[in-house]
Design a protein around this nucleic acid. Structure first.
Lengths: 123, 123
DNA sequence: CTCCACGTTGACGTGGACGTCAAGTCCAGG
DNA sequence: CCTGGACTTGACGTCCACGTCAACGTGGAG
């Protein structure tokens, strides 16, 4: 398939796919007229990238998973490098969630406060 | 006080303060030599901005709070516009935390999965 | 006087993940 | 043959909150 179809089937854009290629995350053989040709394995690869970036992974963080798929593994997280990224990201997520939760609690407290001040007699 | 002192007392930089001014969040009268002069009310104003951005507010979101302080209110969240921003931000935070939590759970599951596959016999 | 810290403005850089042109090629349908 | 759509490369734009640099003015200490 060509780049437009791949983009559509992966729910992304041709621009993004070319960008991935510029990063070396994606490679494509060229048909006679110079157009990129992709197959199902590329689709799985892009799907892997998207599923990770959707979770908040940076594109660079998806590289180990992509490499892992390239070396023939059935899933991108079968390699130790990928698992290491999982661990790191998990820790990052934990910390981020913690900070956001604290922030939320503060905002909620401020909001309650502000409401109490604005209508101290209601109920 | 001048901009350097204000920056230091607010835990930020002169560059940031000038940036706030360029956005209209902060205004300063000028002394004879053209240097910005601030007082304690400016300090409270910047402190308000910082406390909000630290929580994850965008600078634009701090504007209602700043306006509120400017109109003489004791606290920046005494005005309805500020409270509205609180509400919106709270909702955004909730949703974001939800998404991240889901992502974390997925990553954790993937990680467990990957580890089970890589050493299926260990314990 | 010099020196140094501080201030001024304006312009450009950063990072991340693309969007958005521009200007051309290639192919199928009518 | 023409038109339209999909494709190509390359370069520049976007967002946000500043950082960094240049080139200069100002005020006080020694």
């Amino acid at each position: 398939m060509r780049i437009g179809e791949l983009a559509q089937r992966c729910g992304t854009t041709t621009r993004a796919l070319r960008y991935y290629e510029s990063l070396g995350l994606l490679t494509a053989r060229r048909s006679a007229n110079g157009q990129r040709e992709y197959d199902e394995s590329d689709l799985r690869l892009v799907a892997q990238i998207r599923s990770l970036t959707d979770i908040g992974f940076a594109l660079e963080d998806t590289r180990p998973f992509v490499e892992c798929l390239r070396t023939g593994h059935a899933s991108g997280d079968a390699c130790p490098a990928s698992v290491a990224v999982y661990r790191r990201k998990l820790a990052e997520l934990e910390e981020f969630i913690g900070r956001l939760t604290a922030a939320r609690d503060r905002v909620r407290a401020q909001l309650d406060d502000a409401e109490r001040r604005s209508r101290p007699c209601k109920r």
